[in-house]
Amino acid sequence: MAEELWPVPKFHFEVSWGDVDLGFQEVTGLEMETQLIEYRAGNDLGLITKKIPGLKKHGTITLKKGVFENDTTFYDWFADVQTNTERREDIIISLLNEEHEPVMTWTVTNAFPVKISGPDLKSDANEIALESIELAHEGIEQTAG
């Protein structure tokens, strides 16, 4: 009898780049898109445009994590990019199984921060303070395992 397969839950993942070892609460923006080009030749007798793939387009990726005492990792990278525009990082995002092994991996190429956000502060809230970083990049490659 064939083994029944189940989809992988999304809560067990890791994010790494360079020597940075941080735990994240959320990763969003793993999106890839191809722009559509519509074309019709002047001598085409049909009244239908042909559709062909154009340039690839990638949105920004947002990483969210808890605020820790004396942790300025996001700010340091953001500030460094302002004076060192060549500072880019390849980021590896892995979805993990129960044995902590990668099931799916996304490699984000030449990422750099374009926005950082501190926590929303509220005196009557009972929540963890979260900060986020938004990253522009030059492509995503997805691999299994």
Rank of each mutant, 00 (worst) to 15 (best):
I93H: 12
D76F: 12
I93E: 10
L96W: 08
T85H: 12
E89S: 04
F112Y: 13
S117R: 12
W77A: 06
V108N: 01
D80Y: 13
F112C: 02
E98D: 03
F78S: 06
R87V: 05
W106F: 02
T105N: 13
E98Y: 01
R88F: 11
T83F: 08
P102E: 01
R87Y: 05
V108K: 11
I116N: 14
S117T: 09
D71C: 07
E98T: 00
D76W: 06
T73A: 13
S117F: 14
W106E: 07
G118F: 15
T109C: 00
V114Q: 11
L95M: 04
V114I: 15
T73H: 09
P113N: 09
E99P: 06
N84P: 00
E99Y: 04
V81F: 03
E89L: 10
E89P: 00
E89K: 12
S117H: 12
I116V: 10
P102L: 06
T83Q: 04
L96G: 05
D90A: 04
V108R: 02
V103C: 00
T83E: 09
A111Q: 12
F74G: 06
D80A: 15
V114R: 08
T109W: 02
N110T: 09
T72C: 15
V81H: 00
W106R: 09
L95P: 02
L95F: 03
N110C: 04
T85M: 14
P102W: 03
F74K: 00
R87N: 03
R88P: 07
N97P: 08
Q82P: 10
P113R: 10
K115V: 03
L96E: 08
E86S: 12
V114S: 11
D71E: 05
E86V: 08
T105W: 05
I93L: 07
A111S: 15
N84D: 03
D90S: 05
M104V: 04
I93Y: 05
S117W: 13
Y75W: 15
A111Y: 15
K115N: 12
E89C: 01
R87T: 11
L95V: 01
A79N: 07
T73Y: 12
E99I: 09
T85Q: 13
